[in-house]
Design a protein around this nucleic acid. Structure first.
Length: 552
RNA sequence: GCGCUCGUAGCUCAGUGGAUAGAGCAGAGGACUUCUAAUCCUAAGGUCGCAGGUUCGAAUCCUGCCGGGCGCACCA
């Protein structure tokens, strides 16, 4: 029996009790969930339903709980129901009902954990959106890992997801970048306000290699050539770095196309129609203060140039017109000042800022090495790139360590630890559980022991088997909760718990026959449980973009 | 100054109002004739930043204070 099924059964029992006693059934919630008590004395599952509704039902919680318990204990698959504390219902399942879960998981396979929780949602998920003026670096990496996992998790919860990377390829920063590359090609120092990094010199060499005459001809031709070539090379490098990190972007959206295609004009007109645009001091403004921003924002400067904010507005409106009902932005805490103005764009466009736009703010990653904080700076050359991180620890360890903690919490990475690639990273604990299972299954094949088409779930009655079954049963809810709360780290934490539960099972429950012993029904039942465990570990790791190794 | 955000074990972090606050790592002790010991078991480790409040119940919600990070452009 799955937790969801049990919750339904409990709710049904409560409905019966309410009907019997003539209580108002509207007091009961439409859905309820069961918890897994930490203390094993509190049963396999517990429900606080009676306490939640007692007050409004006008019945003491313990009395209500006792009545529900009496009915519930007669339901199939239920071994016992106790009322405890202020009104908890503590439920134990039959071994057979619990063991059935192994079948549910194995038969679902890859699909175990998927749901329709967010079905019908058409989501645009924007993250990273690094400027194409430098390599993807550590500052972006957390959002790459978290964003891509979120993409996978939202999709698993049934949402239609498009991941998107915005390219700020218009404006003066691009010109400064191109001029920095050109200066490097000429062997000149970096211009004022330009980009000094080593990568700039490398780009310069690449441009010269492809175009030996790049520094000849009219100034304007040179500028254009360096702009086009440096941009093309830099963008290709960014795409390669992110692809190597396992991050998929469905759309790379160029800011230039907004300007060239008239989308900015179109957006301005739309905002005007909604009545939130005005002119003052020679500039054109959006009255974002109508919707919680602390000051109005300029769309067109008095010199006629459109602001970055105008492009942001156009981009949002463009997304909505492409059919996305939810636009999610993943931003670092250094951009939290944009939250109100972005929400105001949605409101000014006539949308619901509490539904159509969602801005997730993540805390920044800081670094220590040798116990000393490391400050990252493009200028000082202490930038750490995504490629360097992957070279040092590999994709799995990097993605996992960034995705396993809540984006809300400031993260401190110790470079000494992370580059040591030791067991300090819990990813190995999880992966090892998968590799151990894969090894066991190889041995089973060698021994010609097969899982077969059926098994007796009642044989899975050992405490450690029960623990494992319960943990496997949690997975679908972990995924849907992670999707609803936009918190991929929940999947990682769950996998660590599952791996631990599996290791403890493995420690005391022999699966395969030893020596000349024959395979038994218990062997087969445990093979179903082991395969179910492998499936959930693999499905969970997939959601994090981390590999599930066959061997370690 | 205004605003946002974070504060939980020595370290890195979980804990969407529930029962005795958890994990990993580090440190102490134990288990290899191994279905992979990258594992398991035992013990130790806490003023959940501080002080009030809300309620049957608060690490969780509210207020104030303290401390860290970040942000406050007709910049991009």
């Amino acid at each position: 029996m799955t937790p969801a099924k049990l919750a339904e059964t409990i709710l049904a029992a409560a409905h019966d009790v309410f009907a019997e006693r003539g209580l108002d059934r509207a007091v009961l919630p439409g859905m309820t969930a069961v918890e897994r008590p930490r203390n094993p004395e509190h049963g396999d599952y517990s429900s606080n339903l009676a306490m939640q509704v007692a007050k409004r039902a006008g019945t003491p919680p313990r009395e209500l709980a006792a009545a529900v318990a009496e009915r519930l204990s007669r339901a199939p698959g239920i071994k016992s129901v106790d009322v405890a504390g202020p009104g908890f219902l503590n439920v134990r399942l039959d071994a057979a009902a619990a063991g059935e879960l192994a079948r549910v998981v194995v038969e679902a396979g890859d699909a175990y954990g998927r749901s329709a929780a967010l079905a019908g949602r058409n989501v645009n998920l924007e993250f990273v959106s690094a400027n194409p003026t430098g390599p993807v670096h550590l500052g972006h990496t957390r959002w790459a890992a978290v964003g891509d996992s979120l993409r996978r998790i939202l999709a698993a919860a049934g949402a239609e997801v498009t991941s998107e990377h915005y390219i700020n390829d218009a404006g003066t920063q691009m010109d400064r970048f191109a001029e920095s590359v050109r200066a490097a090609a000429k062997g000149e120092p970096t211009p004022e306000g330009g980009y000094p990094g080593e990568y700039v010199a490398e780009l310069a060499q690449q441009v010269l290699a492809a175009h030996p005459d790049a520094l000849e001809g009219p100034e304007e031709r040179q500028r254009r050539l360096f702009l086009d070539e440096a941009y093309r090379l830099m963008l290709a490098e960014m795409r390669a770095s992110l692809a190597r990190f396992g991050v998929r972007f469905d759309v790379w959206f160029s800011e230039r196309t907004l300007h060239d295609g008239g989308a900015v004009e179109h957006a301005l007109n739309k905002l005007r129609e909604q009545g939130h645009v005005y002119e003052a001091e020679g500039a054109v403004w959006l009255r974002t203060t109508d919707f919680g921003d602390d000051k109005d924002r300029v769309l067109i400067r008095s010199n006629g140039e459109k602001t970055y904010f105008a492009a942001d507005s156009a981009y949002y409106i463009n997304k909505r017109e492409r059919g996305f009902d939810k636009c999610i932005y993943l931003l670092g805490a250094d951009h939290h000042g944009y939250v109100n103005r972005l929400r105001a764009i949605a409101a000014c466009a006539g949308d619901d800022p509490d539904f159509n736009i969602e801005i997730l703010i993540g805390q920044l990653v800081s670094l220590v090495r040798g116990g000393q904080p490391v400050r990252l700076s493009k200028r000082a050359g202490t930038l750490i790139t995504l490629d360097e991180i992957v070279d040092a620890v590999g994709v799995d360890a990097a993605r996992y360590s960034l995705a396993r903690s809540s984006a809300d919490s400031p993260l401190t990475l110790d470079l000494d630890v992370i580059t040591r690639q030791s067991n300090d990273n819990p990813v190995y604990y999880v992966q090892y559980a998968h590799a151990r299972i894969a090894s066991l299954l190889r041995n089973a094949t060698e021994l010609r022991v097969e899982r077969g088409t059926d098994f007796d779930p009642g044989l899975l009655g050992h405490q450690r088997e029960n623990d494992l079954l319960k943990k496997l049963g949690e997975f679908p809810e972990v995924v849907s909760t992670a999707a609803e709360l936009r918190e991929p780290h929940r999947v990682a934490r769950y996998l660590e718990e599952l791996a631990g539960t599996y290791h403890r099972f493995y420690d005391v429950c022999r699966v395969l026959p030893q020596g000349d012993e024959p395979a038994t029904e218990l062997t087969r039942a445990r093979l179903w449980l082991v395969e179910a465990s492998r499936i959930v570990l693999a499905n969970g790791l997939e959601l994090l973009g981390v590999s599930a190794p066959e061997r370690m």
